[in-house]
Simulated scan of single mutants.
Amino acid sequence: MRFGARTGTVLAASVSAFVLSCTAAHAIGDDGSQAPPSGGSGGASGGTLTASAATRIKVTQKSGGTGGSTQPLAPVDPNWEPPACWYEPVATPQQLKAAVERLKKNPNGDLVPVTPSLSWGEELMVNHYEKGQDDTDSGFSYKNYNLGKDGMFWRGVINKNRENDSESYDCERTLFWQNANTLPDDDHAPTPDVLAGYAYDKINVPQTEVELKPAARSTVNLPTWAWLDKATFKEVKVRAELPDAGVWAETTAKPVALHLNPGTRDAETYPASGDCAINDDGSIGAPYAKGEADRTPPCGVRYLRATDGAPYQLKASVTWQISWEGSGGAKGGLPDGTFETTQAMTVQEIQSVNR
């Protein structure tokens, strides 16, 4: 997956012609001609947005992960991160022209963001996007805002969850034109794999406590059964789409295994690895039935020493397998995710128990 760094071109110009994103900037298209963006970096005040504008990626929970308490997954691969930035369509020719016209009426007012960290004033905007003049040797310019052409102007967007990372400033390509139904030839284009990584970062799974028998008080040398009912274990699917770019991806988290860590070396797990596989019906382990106290459970733990004051902390972590599919028939996988819960276990020194 290509979420690596790419250095963009930041144009040199006089201080009076541009400012950094800490200064208020016009929201391109804030004339009511488009739906407000959501879910990204930036803030709105008085009809303006900061230069690091919010993303227009639409996130939809397709299945699972709703109701009750949910939490995000932790990727098994500690080096994996969601994309730091990408490019998005932000303005039609008419919307860009409207933003510059507002500048003409108030040259000392808000500026127009052309990168996540850079905004331009009237002179540069008029020269580059209206008159077709390239007075910064940048190698690009447009006449009359490309009015009449089919496409949009694109700009970089920063992932709000990574806005303090240096890679967040790799999308510094100045506001550029992209023909309709095409994606930029750029490492940070919003391809399906980028949207899949963005969707992964939005996945929340249920906070599921493992069923135990006995539930909180176990007995030395007798097994504690552990299981998860199939009704508890469901796939979670999140869709991320960028409508103006015609790109989408659906990322699916599928529960595949349960790992038990008894919280002490004085214990044995079943199976010995502590990894309880998922059954064909979607459940894990098997519920305890009366009279099975001495049987070996398919998933569980046996404590060999009683607790002394503080209970053992039994950790149960569920592994979720991550896959995705997207526009154009694209598909792939992402690192597995885990979610861990901890349950206190008191173990008593009794050799027999009536269950």
Rank of each mutant, 00 (worst) to 15 (best):
E241F: 10
N159Q: 09
V301C: 07
Y142H: 05
T269M: 13
S273T: 13
E211W: 06
K105V: 02
R2I: 08
I28T: 13
G332D: 03
T319K: 09
K105P: 00
K315N: 10
A5Y: 04
C299E: 05
V76M: 00
G197C: 04
A286I: 01
Y145K: 06
K62M: 13
D170T: 15
G39I: 09
R295M: 05
D30A: 15
T341W: 02
Q95S: 05
D308V: 09
S41R: 13
G64P: 01
R302H: 01
Y288M: 00
G274Y: 01
V157F: 09
G329V: 10
K97W: 00
S52P: 05
L96Q: 03
R2C: 03
E172L: 14
R265C: 04
K213S: 15
A196K: 13
L124F: 08
G40Y: 09
A180E: 15
S117D: 03
S63P: 01
L258R: 09
H259N: 02
Y142G: 00
D229L: 13
P107L: 13
D185E: 13
H259C: 00
Q133C: 00
T232V: 13
G43I: 05
K104C: 01
V15L: 11
A293M: 06
T346Q: 03
I350P: 01
N159K: 13
A98I: 09
W86N: 03
S45M: 12
L212N: 08
A289T: 06
F140C: 01
A84F: 06
G29T: 08
E268M: 02
N204L: 15
G68W: 01
G68N: 10
P37Q: 10
K237A: 15
T208E: 14
S38D: 07
P184T: 11
P78Q: 04
A316I: 06
T92A: 05
E211D: 14
E292H: 11
G333M: 07
L147Y: 04
L314S: 06
D281R: 02
E101N: 12
E241W: 07
A306T: 01
G282H: 07
S218A: 15
H128I: 09
A277L: 10
V205K: 10
R173M: 12
Q133F: 07
Q71A: 10
G156L: 03
R217V: 14
I203A: 10
R6E: 08
D30Q: 12
L96I: 08
G65L: 02
F176W: 11
G8E: 05
A5C: 02
T232H: 14
A17L: 08
T346F: 07
V220F: 07
E167V: 12
C171I: 07
R265P: 02
D193A: 14
R162M: 01
N79E: 08
K131H: 09
V157H: 07
E340R: 14
G282K: 01
P82C: 04
L334K: 07
A215R: 15
T66C: 01
V301M: 01
P311L: 07
